[in-house]
């Protein structure tokens, strides 16, 4: 179902996405779009369905109804070519989920070799460059268990980038980190954004959202309550729920 998609159209296009777990509806008609090189942040209280949305975009969970298109590929299509989708979409998790039996370098190299069948030498050169880019040069042969949380998370980012995705999804990537290592991960993401990478983040880091995002969505109980440019949303929220949430977290 790869419709004629052109690069000027949004990379991600969600239309009226609904998702239920049994009787519980966690997404109640979400529509949003992400254009190339945009940085989009989704904020909102816990349990508002933010992470579910991001997992649905990567087809880790099926949606109940509605449509999610990634560069024209319909995610809810039962004949979806998951590999084609996942080459375009990189994802970073809250718990890093590095492969503990492989070194940092091997973690970055594995997927391009196993999944894309690329040549080891090329992949290795790129993996080393990526690790340097996330400021982990010198840690190539270190195992995940020997790295701090922030370092592990940056390896995870490099691991996703090695697949050359068109868009990166970040699912509360700093939530499990110590306060002092949060910053190093945020700096890495900011640098990515400055390089023109399209990013969709679920985050609790309001200052980061305010400084880096092009557009911020506020969700609560499965719906988008309000969205707009960060300055407008953070200084002049129209909805009362948004105001209450922001006053609590800022």
């Amino acid at each position: 179902m790869a419709t004629s998609w052109t690069p000027d159209q949004p990379i991600v296009q969600c239309v009226d996405v609904r998702k239920s777990f049994g009787a519980l509806e966690v997404l109640k008609g979400i529509s949003l779009s992400v254009k190339k090189s945009e940085v989009i942040c989704i904020i909102g209280p816990s349990g508002s369905g933010k992470s579910t949305l991001i997992r649905c975009i990567n087809a880790l969970q099926p949606i109940t109804s509605g449509s999610i298109q990634i560069e024209g590929i319909e995610v809810s299509d039962p004949r979806l070519d998951k590999l084609a989708l996942r080459r375009k979409v990189g994802m970073v998790f809250q718990q890093y989920n590095l492969f503990p039996h492989k070194t940092a370098l091997q973690n970055v190299m594995m997927a391009p070799i196993h999944v894309l069948g690329q040549k080891r030498a090329e992949v290795e050169a790129r993996a080393r460059a990526l690790l340097a880019k996330v400021r982990l040069a010198g840690k190539e042969d270190t195992y995940p268990g020997e790295l701090s949380g922030g370092q592990q998370q940056r390896v995870a980012i490099a691991r996703s980038l090695a697949m050359r995705p068109d868009i990166m999804l970040f699912d509360e990537v700093t939530a499990a980190l110590d306060p002092e290592t949060v910053k190093e991960v945020l700096v890495t993401i900011r640098e990515l954004a400055e390089d023109g990478m399209t990013c969709l983040l679920v985050t609790h880091e309001m200052n980061f959202a305010r400084e880096v995002a092009d557009h911020v969505y506020f969700t609560d109980r499965g719906v988008i309550v309000e969205h707009g440019p960060p300055e407008a949303l953070f200084t002049a929220a129209k909805d009362e729920r948004t105001q209450r949430f922001l006053s609590q977290v800022l």
């Binding site: 890093y96 268990g145 701090s148 110590d178």
Partner: peptide
């Protein structure tokens, strides 16, 4: 920091 690291390790494998 050290504690947090130990905690992450534990989370990796049950």
């Amino acid at each position: 920091m050290k504690d947090a690291q130990a905690e992450h390790r534990l989370a990796v494998l049950l």
